[in-house]
């Protein structure tokens, strides 16, 4: 293959795999939005904290796989805490204060991380750091494969749980009509808490699979929140498959623009995408309409 095309393809593939991680973080937005009509603007901060917790655990000799479980446990707790301590209070008063509250909690998380772990980016050691697989000259590293498999696996697992367990169906019911769900004996506040907890776990998990590729530092949070938000807005807040496509697209475009225009331009495509989506199609490209007859 032409070496120049090969280089572009290599960049596109790496970007696409990273894009799946953005999709997973954005999926966290979908989960909480479905249940409580609110999202965590500190989702990227949860990803960062998840990565740091995982990193700390591997630092004291805990194997990578177990560090993932530990980070997810912390993420679950944090997701639950953000809903319980801040978002619910704002929604109870029917105001949009949750936007500011989740941003503030996120800022607090960044300063906490700077104080505990320092400002520098740290490598996240994984058992297979050096290995990579070649497909027709394009190399894919094991951490990249872990991102793809982990992000897709987590989303598929949660989607199955949503459709095939009574818990999941109940959460969907709360999302469709909270009062009617209450009348069925479903505590809608518990369903919302559950969604936030799962969303937090997904974010922390994302941190432990992104970390090995990008390194871990407090600055990863803001960039991830923005990218995930772009992906969620472009895809719409109700289509998981839309997130996957949009995530892959954004990841690819940003890697190519970083490669072509210089690394300072990496973040631009996400912003442009977000602005275009908000201006042209606020319900998202994949946003679906619910059939409703009266």
């Amino acid at each position: 293959m032409n070496p120049e095309i090969l280089a572009y393809t290599q960049m596109a593939v790496s970007g696409a795999l990273m894009g799946l991680a953005y999709a997973l973080v954005a999926y966290g937005f979908q989960l909480t939005f479905a249940a409580g009509k609110a999202v965590n603007f500190g989702q990227g901060e949860l990803v960062m904290l998840g990565a740091f917790v995982g990193l700390t655990l591997t630092g004291i000799g805990i194997p990578y796989w177990l560090s993932i479980a530990g980070a997810m446990a912390v993420g679950t707790g944090l997701g639950w805490f953000v809903e319980r301590s801040a978002v619910r209070l704002a929604l109870k008063q029917h105001n949009e204060g949750w936007i500011l509250l989740t941003i503030i909690i996120g800022l607090f998380a960044v300063s906490a991380a700077e104080n505990i772990w320092g400002r520098e980016d740290k490598p996240y050691p994984v058992p297979w750091q050096d290995g990579s697989i070649d497909f027709y000259g394009i190399s894919v590293t094991w951490p990249e494969i872990t991102i793809a498999a982990g992000a897709l696996g987590a989303m598929i697992l949660i989607e199955i749980a949503k459709r095939c367990t009574m818990f999941g169906i109940a959460v969907q019911a709360v999302s469709a009509d909270p009062d009617a769900a209450e009348l069925c004996g479903i505590r809608s506040t518990s369903a919302t808490s559950l969604s936030w907890a799962v969303s937090g776990a997904a974010a922390a998990f994302a941190g432990t699979i992104i970390g090995p590729v990008t390194t871990v530092g407090p600055t990863m949070a803001a960039a991830l929140t923005l990218k995930a938000f772009s992906v969620a807005v472009v895809a719409g807040l109700d289509s998981a498959i839309g997130l996957v496509f949009t995530g892959i697209f954004l990841g690819t475009v940003e890697n190519l623009s970083g490669f072509l225009l210089g690394s300072g331009w990496r973040e631009t495509p996400g912003l442009i995408l977000l602005i275009l989506a908000l201006a042209l199609r606020p319900q998202g490209i994949f946003g679906k309409k619910i059939i409703r007859k009266v």
């Binding site: 009574m166 469709a176 069925c184």
Partner: peptide, 26 residues
């Protein structure tokens, strides 16, 4: 107030939510 996006059968199952196993052969 039916759950519009859910299926008819899922709507009925939700009526029995407190009695059904959350995970498993509901």
């Amino acid at each position: 107030h039916v759950f519009a996006p859910l299926s008819v059968e899922e709507n009925l199952l939700l009526g029995a939510f407190p009695r059904l196993p959350s995970i498993g052969p509901f």
